[in-house]
């Protein structure tokens, strides 16, 4: 049913409907781990990893559920897939690259409750993407998440030494900045649409 081109899907998930700034998915890590650039991009890499793998698995599982006529198990199976993907990725990285594991280690378990990952799985299902579209969508969405996270981290590092009233410090400031970033990202609307 869905005839969007791969390029459109990618740009759409990356910028136009950025997962954090316009669809509001993955806000918790966006607020929580955007204080330092170094941690922000590591979190981003971990999310890209997990999103891609879980998107593949979710695609397969959904196909299986449709065949079995058991779509009512979709939410449960998706969350189980994500939780186990996080575990698998954790074990895999630990075995293959201890250095990377030390860098990503504590961020991995947090991804289970990152709604961006579950969001990718749910959106690709409800929009009836085929296999290639799903992969491209997962890539675009997770790259978009990382871009937003890194942008926010850069801004927050710059603001560290600024003189900000006590009341505004913390979450409220991050949200104000996110609002401005989100306004900027609205400028991407209509990109790539024939006019």
């Amino acid at each position: 049913m869905n005839n969007q081109s791969l390029g459109h899907i990618f740009i759409d998930a990356l910028l136009i409907n950025n997962f954090v700034l316009s669809v509001f998915l993955g806000i918790c890590p966006f607020i929580g781990v955007s204080a330092k650039l170094a941690t922000a991009w590591r979190m981003g890499v971990a999310v890209i990893f997990v999103t891609l793998v879980s998107s593949l698995l979710a695609y397969g599982t959904n196909a299986l559920l449709v065949v079995l006529n058991a779509e009512y198990l979709r939410i449960i199976s998706f969350i189980v897939i994500i939780a186990s993907t996080v575990q698998l990725v954790e074990m895999f990285i630990k075995k293959t690259s201890p250095a990377l594991f030390r860098a990503l280690g504590i961020y991995l378990p947090l991804i289970t409750t990152n709604c961006a990952v579950l969001g990718v799985a749910l959106f690709q299902t409800s929009r009836q993407y085929d296999f290639a579209q799903s992969v491209v969508f997962a890539a675009g969405a997770s790259f978009g998440f990382t871009i937003a996270l890194v942008l926010m981290a850069v801004i927050r590092e710059k603001l560290e030494l600024s003189d900000i009233p006590d009341t505004v410090r913390g979450t409220a400031l991050v949200l104000l900045l996110a609002g401005i970033l989100s306004l900027a990202f609205m400028g991407f609307s209509g990109m790539g649409v024939e006019s």
Binding site: H8, N17, G190
Partner: peptide, 10 residues
């Protein structure tokens, strides 16, 4: 039914 990419989404 018909669908198409608009300014913001489908």
């Amino acid at each position: 039914e018909a669908s198409e990419r608009g300014y913001a989404d489908m």
